[in-house]
Design a protein around this nucleic acid. Structure first.
Lengths: 173, 173
DNA sequence: CAAAATATGTCAGCGCTGTTGCCATATCTC
DNA sequence: GAGATATGGCAACAGCGCTGACATATTTTG
């Protein structure tokens, strides 16, 4: 009953007659652990955790983000967000301005202080990518981008694309 | 003062005169989130968390692992390990046998039940890799392996290599 | 306009998983 | 026999995810 419709990794796609890809599973685990470890060490000196990092990162990347949009990106609950957001607001890494069109909304912006920390963290993590890519052929960067994108749930890929490569900033409210 | 000694990504390696690689940073975040999400859903039905998964995974992969070796791989503290290991032992997913050469050591083995769960989880995660690779050129698997390995701390790469591609099983104690 | 829907805030409480510090026991090595 | 080692256990704490319930301001809708 075989057809030609299957992809080239057919055997691997049919879970139980293929060896699991232990190598990829383990390498992704170790790579991600080291990747977040870089940021963890810097965050510690601010007494921030990973949750603060994620909020600050996306607010810095998308100035004017609302609470609801942030919740959608992070896929966490309001309560989990508000704990860390409150600290970022109190300590002046992020500021919130009421929406103009809809005054219920709070648009979030990184302050100068917040932008600096967000950039420091991004540079740290970029250094790891740069070191890795330096040891690989020139096309490795594009290959890595395509691989990581393909690993994301297909139903989310379009959304991630527009988040990662935004098409024109939104006007300030 | 430039020399020819720098790598081909020199500009990116010098943190503060290069744009951070926001795309890679964000893609790795989303890819890893979806990757562990697969396992999370299955683990939930056993009332296990990610920590249980990691312990079960490495014990299954390296039968006869001792506590100290496991702590070294996972880089967590004894207390964090013993909580989840105790549950895996109590519920018969893992069993411990005293060492023969050194009776202080406890060598850990996945039971049949434990091996089945470990394999189910690995198959789940392999399916995501298979789906991703299916959409990419034939060399994507090797490229991904090389990329992920390069992302790991260079000082740990040799250790990870021998862990991911073991060179001959150890004799049962 | 009144009612319903929406965006957000807040509180109490819980679960998982990481941490430190300290002490106990069995065993091995010198 | 003394000291090092492998492991176990307890208390306490932190970070960050969750749910459920309730409050407020604002916008939208019938």
């Amino acid at each position: 009953m075989e057809t030609a419709l299957h992809g080239k990794h057919k055997a691997q796609a049919e879970a139980h007659d293929a060896e699991p890809m232990f190598d990829l599973i383990e390498l992704l685990f170790f790579a991600y652990r080291d990747f977040v470890g870089d940021a963890d060490r810097l965050l510690e000196s601010y007494r921030f955790g990973r949750a603060h990092h994620r909020v600050l990162h996306f607010v810095n990347r998308q100035p004017g983000l609302t609470i609801a949009e942030l919740l959608d990106i992070l896929k966490i609950t309001k309560q989990s967000l508000s704990r860390v957001l409150k600290e970022l607001l109190d300590q002046n890494f992020v500021e919130a301005r009421a929406g103009v069109a809809d005054r219920r909304q709070r648009h979030l912006y990184a302050t100068a202080k917040g932008r600096k920390l967000a950039l420091d963290l991004a540079h740290l993590q970029s250094r790891r990518f740069a070191r890795a890519l330096d040891a690989l052929p020139a096309n490795a960067r594009q290959d890595a981008i395509r691989f990581l994108m393909a690993m994301i749930d297909p139903s989310d890929q379009d959304e991630v694309k527009s988040l990662v490569w935004p098409q024109g900033a939104r006007p300030a409210p």
